[in-house]
């Protein structure tokens, strides 16, 4: 199911290498290893959320997926994510609102927003007014570039 060798092309640093090795070791086990970095992927475009979920699992993350902000908050309550990757323009709760909620509950979680649309500067500005700034990248983004960004400290 996993082709570890090709994943390794994109994940070069030791930390991820170790995770992958352990992932490979424990591949038979359904239960992911506790030490895997946990990432919550949120996008109302299900195909994007699903494919990214797979890609990030390949890259050595333990992945949880949600298709809207409220669902994301519910999942986060049990999942305790180390990372949040979220779309910005979503119905009901936008990415910035979600990110603020996650930041408050899990201050150490790394948050990355992505968007395929112009006209979100107001949403970001709302967040800034409340004192929250988040890193934002433009869709479409190549998966390897995305992984690189998530790894970067």
């Amino acid at each position: 199911m996993f082709e570890i060798s090709s994943v390794a092309i994109y994940v070069a640093d030791d930390f991820f290498q170790n995770q992958l090795t352990s992932l490979a070791d424990g591949m038979d086990s359904k239960e992911p290893q506790r030490s895997l970095p946990k990432i919550l992927v949120v996008d109302d475009e299900r195909r994007i959320a699903d494919t990214l979920g797979e890609i990030l699992e390949l890259a050595g993350f333990h992945v949880a997926i949600a298709y809207d902000g409220w669902e994301a908050l519910e999942r986060a309550a049990r999942f305790h994510p180390d990372y949040l990757l979220s779309d910005v323009l979503m119905p009901q709760m936008n990415g910035v609102e979600l990110a603020i909620a996650i930041r408050k509950t899990y201050p150490s979680a790394k948050i990355l927003l992505f968007s395929g649309q112009a006209g979100i500067s107001e949403i970001l500005l709302d967040g800034q007014k409340q004192g929250f700034e988040f890193e934002l990248v433009a869709k479409p983004i190549h998966p390897s570039k995305l992984i690189e960004l998530l790894k970067a400290e």
Binding site: E45, R47, I48, L52, E54, G116, P140
Partner: peptide
């Protein structure tokens, strides 16, 4: 968005 999906 479709580009993102296709790329993935």
């Amino acid at each position: 968005n479709p580009l993102e999906s296709v790329m993935n």
